[in-house]
Simulated assay, not measured.
Amino acid sequence: MCELRRGAGVVARVRWVKIFLAGASGVLGSRLTPMLIAAGCRVAGMTRSPEKAEMLAGLGAEPVVCDVFDAAGLEQAVRAYAPDLVMHQLTDLPDRAEDLAAGRAANARMRKEGTANLIAAAQAAGAKRFVAQSVAWEMSGEGQAAKEFLESAVLGLGGVVLRYGQFYGAGTYYPEGAKLPDPPRIHVDEAAARTVLGLDLGSGIYALTEDGGSDFTPVN
């Protein structure tokens, strides 16, 4: 059992000791990984970039280099780790905000095909819990369809959907000192901390935004 702390006090105890974190090298995943490890969890950090494996090892994770679109390889990797919990923090976003429009199709594919592959791998490995990221704002076209697919698929297996506001802070499209994004929004460090605190939530959809409090009231 992991103990999650803020300051000097224990704020939660979580049953999920072995966590397979897909998207561990991303802007949120790279913050989640050391928080989970500090809480006493064991983390397999998945990235598709061999160059980022060393970074994940430095954070204390067991690096797993795998492409989510390689369904067979993904299933093998998740089975080999045999996690209690699989966490989906995968996105396929461009480095620059001005390229977001051009990258919509790639991110929609991640939310559809990537999510389906990761769910299948988690089920094959016998994982007891599945947690996935979504967004707290409405989109249009293929982006909204992909969001709805992800959320429906995760809820269908009794999982947890975390709808994040737009991130701001170091490493995001809105770095420290820059103009804040429009609401709904959340500082990326706070998003990571609240994700860790929410690992034992009941199945449902939860909004993680700076104006949404921290009581994890389901939105559905």
Score class of each variant (00 low, 15 high):
residue 7 G to P: 00
residue 9 G to E: 09
residue 9 G to W: 03
residue 10 V to T: 13
residue 13 R to P: 00
residue 19 I to C: 04
residue 21 L to S: 04
residue 24 A to M: 03
residue 26 G to I: 04
residue 27 V to S: 10
residue 35 M to V: 02
residue 37 I to A: 05
residue 38 A to C: 01
residue 40 G to C: 04
residue 40 G to Q: 05
residue 43 V to M: 14
residue 45 G to P: 12
residue 47 T to I: 06
residue 48 R to K: 15
residue 48 R to E: 00
residue 49 S to I: 02
residue 49 S to F: 15
residue 55 M to F: 12
residue 66 C to E: 14
residue 67 D to L: 03
residue 68 V to S: 02
residue 72 A to F: 15
residue 76 Q to K: 13
residue 77 A to V: 08
residue 77 A to R: 14
residue 77 A to T: 10
residue 79 R to M: 11
residue 80 A to D: 09
residue 83 P to G: 08
residue 84 D to M: 08
residue 91 T to P: 01
residue 94 P to K: 15
residue 95 D to L: 13
residue 97 A to I: 13
residue 105 A to V: 13
residue 119 I to M: 11
residue 120 A to H: 05
residue 120 A to F: 12
residue 122 A to Q: 11
residue 124 A to W: 15
residue 124 A to H: 11
residue 126 G to C: 03
residue 129 R to M: 00
residue 132 A to T: 05
residue 134 S to M: 13
residue 138 E to N: 10
residue 139 M to Y: 10
residue 146 A to H: 05
residue 147 K to D: 15
residue 156 G to R: 11
residue 160 V to C: 01
residue 165 G to Y: 01
residue 165 G to H: 01
residue 174 Y to G: 08
residue 181 P to C: 11
residue 187 H to C: 11
residue 190 E to W: 07
residue 194 R to H: 10
residue 195 T to F: 10
residue 198 G to N: 07
residue 198 G to K: 02
residue 204 G to A: 09
residue 205 I to F: 05
residue 208 L to P: 00
residue 210 E to A: 13
residue 211 D to Y: 04
residue 217 T to A: 13
residue 219 V to F: 10
